[in-house]
């Protein structure tokens, strides 16, 4: 049998013990598992123990990659973002200074998920130096700072004070960064000019960019994009998700039926 099944036989106490053990592979897996399944079965006391253990793992020194990365810290940060407990905020803010890019990125995303305004100033600090700072690191597939993740989280946090820091990234040489910038600015201002930038990216030659823009427009609930999303050269499953995002927003705002009918028809056709 090669079927993948949910690891139902695993329990929170087992995984907690594994996280605090010595085998790096098992610890890494436990951090992921606790973030994914931990809350479903944990008691209140166990929940506290999970958060404590994961916060402890953010300072781990044992698990290192050849390039000096901290894999366990990365997974612990991701798990803490999912668990949604704001006790983790100070430790995650510390992680924004970690020498491992991927730890900083995971922490930036987690801080956006936790929604605590204490994270705004430390996140903004990662954008200092602007476009000139945000260069690719030679030999690595990433920039000096995780600016896309940082801007996305500042958008989630409603950090309007960060707008002047974010705006210059619209001129960053990487189209992906430009899109992340436009999305954050749309979240913070609601201005159509930023939505329209993502809309234009649906015409991009790069299919990966088209998919990213499409999912962003859906997550933003940007109604003017609905028709272009239906026509875009992207797989139907992406279009479904994006259109669902737009329709959800319209319905939550109690939009009139004549406005939503064509969106329902679009979804019907995508099935």
């Amino acid at each position: 049998m090669t079927a993948v099944s949910e690891p139902v036989q695993l329990t929170v106490p087992q995984m907690l013990a594994q996280l605090q053990g010595t085998d790096p592979g098992l610890r890494y897996y436990a951090a992921w598992w606790l973030g994914k399944f931990g809350l479903e079965t944990a008691t209140a006391a166990e929940r506290q123990a999970i958060v404590n253990a994961l916060i402890g793992a953010l300072a781990d020194e044992a698990d290192r990659t050849e390039l000096g990365g901290y894999p366990l810290r990365r997974n612990a940060a991701r798990a803490l973002g999912r668990l949604g407990d704001r006790q983790a905020v100070p430790a995650l803010i510390e992680c924004l200074h970690c020498e491992d890019f991927y730890v900083r990125e995971a922490a930036a995303i987690a801080l956006g998920q936790l929604g605590d305004p204490r994270a705004i100033a430390p996140l903004q600090a990662l954008l200092e130096g602007g476009v000139a700072m945000a260069r690719p690191v030679p030999g690595r597939p990433h920039l000096v700072q995780p600016v896309e993740a940082v801007m996305e989280s500042l958008g989630h946090l409603g950090a309007t004070e960060a707008i002047p820091l974010i705006e210059p990234f619209l001129t960053h040489e990487m189209p992906r960064v430009q899109l992340a910038t436009a999305r954050a600015l749309f979240q913070l201002t609601g201005a159509a000019e930023y939505g329209d930038r993502l809309l234009a990216a649906l015409e991009s030659e790069d299919v990966q960019l088209r998919r990213t823009a499409l999912l962003d427009l859906g997550a933003m609930g940007y109604l003017p994009a609905a028709e272009a999303i239906l026509q875009a050269g992207v797989e139907a499953s992406f279009k479904l998700i994006a259109l669902h995002g737009i329709l959800s927003k319209q319905l939550h705002q109690a939009a009139p039926a004549e406005q939503t009918l064509s969106l329902f028809q679009g979804l019907d056709q995508l099935l």
């Binding site: 669902h244 329709l247 959800s248 319905l251 939550h252 039926a257 939503t260 009918l261 329902f264 979804l267």
Partner: peptide, 11 residues
């Protein structure tokens, strides 16, 4: 649980 599914059925 999903507002889009609910609304489609109401429609």
């Amino acid at each position: 649980p999903d507002i889009v599914v609910r609304s489609r059925c109401q429609l």
